[in-house]
Nucleic acid binder design. Structure first.
Lengths: 341, 341
DNA sequence: CAAGGTATTGCAAACGTTTGCGTGTTGTTT
DNA sequence: AAACAACACGCAAACGTTTGCAATACCTTG
């Protein structure tokens, strides 16, 4: 019952011809006669022949597989990105080898090794929160395994990446609130250590100066992104001498925490206090009390672009120009989207 | 600059010994002298030797890779499951090859082929909504590739699966509402075609009869799971001669649609009308108006169990007993969880 | 010192495929 | 009729490992 998969060798034997002829026939090599070609294909069809990829991998040195390492699969942002990656890779006939680092630098390193051993053709990476050294990724260059970073990118030169610039979206967000008449606009920002925190702050300041308004540092508070931290941050803002009438929050989680808390404080949403956030929760649509607008970060698009770049890199490394000087640096502009309710 | 990965052959040459000795030395084969063993390992370390897995795959006929095919990566339920699968597989030193079918039967078939060609050792599958034939999966048996289904399992005999039984959870859900004093309990169920719809209905009926209450069929309405459909279903229930004071909804999406709509109708939640749902959205925690309780389906646990089973199958197929008569049929009991607000 | 044993190592096949090159068989051309 | 293309196919190496078996060296024992 346990039929082993058919091999090229068996076909050759059954037909009384050589394996090379069979191989070539299956690939429509011109030097094979039409009759043998037909014979081979017929038998191959009947025997349900499927080429053994592992053998081809070994032979060609290419696996047609790309590795993906990201922090957390179950996070909405990443699951959306991985969905895009799989879709895009599938179209180009690549397969996806998946792994999550759980934001653990050590595990990340091990995963890189594993990917290397599996001989993935290329790697897509969103680096962990705590990753401080990127040597384990950079080492891959030596083995000619291209790496494309996305979303959470390391701050080092000479890399390919696609990321979303939060600054533009933030400017839009603040401008949106200004246009609605708000003057005291608060911001619940993330931890100082994150790049994203800086981008948001910069965007905030730029939006203010652009509109010839003075920037009040006391209106930006940082937060550890937990529910408790959010409450504290909101308290802090509300206690400010210039009590904000609108708040930009670091992300949707923070926004929802803040909204929930604001309701408990009997604050009238969208009247006394309006929120704008950064989108990372897909189901904003299912809820009633949501931020007035969200800065979209396009996870699907990011995954798609990153995969496209990797495919491009893989394609071009064969033909000449192994000395690459150009690096893909794709910045997707974040974009403010007003939430319909 | 482009250093090719070190091979066993190079080590052998450099040390003036044979490849087989190097191979054995690296595997701590007892027949290799301690001195050579040390020499080999030292050099291997210096040269950063990493075994070429593709070669090992070919040689051993095992890839230490499992394939995962599921409908939609970006859905919370599946992203949670895949997270579990990856975690579990990683611990056993397996790698995950990932693909999504987008509920497309044809693509599902192609993916199975692809997985087979990649010579995955085993397959984890949650079948697509529209899949009617399961032959493409069953064919894998011939090639000795075990398949474990999870969550969305086909209704055929002789398969391994892990699924969540909705009946118990539903009984709990209805009982929960009965205990709270509700007597007219409505249900917004799914399409008649889905297995899950039947299970919910059965659970509902059993809960009623168990409590010696008569079952009123007009209190169960089906719904296509869209927002519009949900509104219609709710209208229908509210127009019933016995207007329900509580409703069990097919899933969280439906619940949120219904809750949103109910608020628009100025119905006082938890007083006039109470909801219980089936959990598939993780961020219920971030919202104010949520179902009073949810039937948990344990996606992470399902993914974990399914992977464990597959690992077990893979382990035991080597040693004897290739004639397997026993099939794993793991039913995880769904469980009602009261939502704290 | 010969015999036997043991510890160490090498040889070569195998996994399934691709591919450069060689070889034989036709057929065409002069 | 000889020479030469063109065509069709086979041989064998290669990809990097593992592993059964053979072979060598060394050591012990009688």
């Amino acid at each position: 019952m346990q039929s082993k998969p058919t091999t090229i060798k068996e076909i050759a034997q059954l037909l009384g011809i050589s394996v090379s002829t069979v191989s070539r026939a299956l690939h429509d090599h011109p030097s094979i006669g039409l009759t043998t070609r037909a014979k081979v294909k017929k038998l191959a069809g009947e025997l349900n022949y499927e080429p053994n990829q592992t053998a081809i991998f070994l032979q060609k040195g290419k696996t047609h597989t790309i590795g993906v390492i990201l922090p957390e699969l179950s996070e909405a942002f990443f699951s959306s990105a991985i969905s895009a990656i799989e879709d895009t890779a599938y179209k180009k006939n690549y397969t996806v080898l998946l792994a999550q680092s759980h934001d653990d630098e050590l595990k990340e390193k091990q995963l890189v090794e594993k990917m290397k051993n599996h001989r993935v053709d290329g790697l897509l990476v969103s680096v962990g929160k705590n990753t401080s050294s990127f040597q384990h990724f950079e080492n891959l260059k030596k083995y000619n395994i291209p790496v494309v970073y996305f979303d959470r990118i390391p701050n080092i030169p000479n890399i390919h990446y696609v990321a979303c610039n939060m600054e533009i979206g933030t400017i839009e967000a603040v401008s949106f609130l200004l246009k609605k008449g708000h003057r005291a606009i608060g911001m619940i920002n993330g931890p100082q250590t994150m790049v994203a925190t800086g981008e948001r702050k910069e965007g905030y300041i730029k939006a203010m100066t652009k509109n010839r308004l003075k920037y009040d540092p006391s209106l930006i508070v940082s937060c550890d992104l937990t529910e408790e931290g959010t409450k504290k941050a909101l308290d802090e803002l509300l206690a400010n001498k210039r009590k904000p009438t609108a708040i930009v929050t670091f992300n949707d989680y923070v926004a929802l925490f803040a909204i929930k808390y604001a309701q408990k404080l009997n604050i009238k949403l969208n009247q006394e206090l309006e929120f704008v956030s950064y989108a990372n929760l897909p189901l904003i649509n299912y809820m009633e009390n949501i931020p007035a607008a969200s800065v979209e970060q396009f996870p699907y698009l990011q995954g798609q672009k990153a995969t496209d770049i990797l495919m491009d890199l893989l394609h071009h490394q064969d033909k000449g120009s192994n000395e690459q000087s150009a690096y893909y640096k794709i910045i997707i502009e974040s974009q403010l989207i007003e939430n319909k309710k």
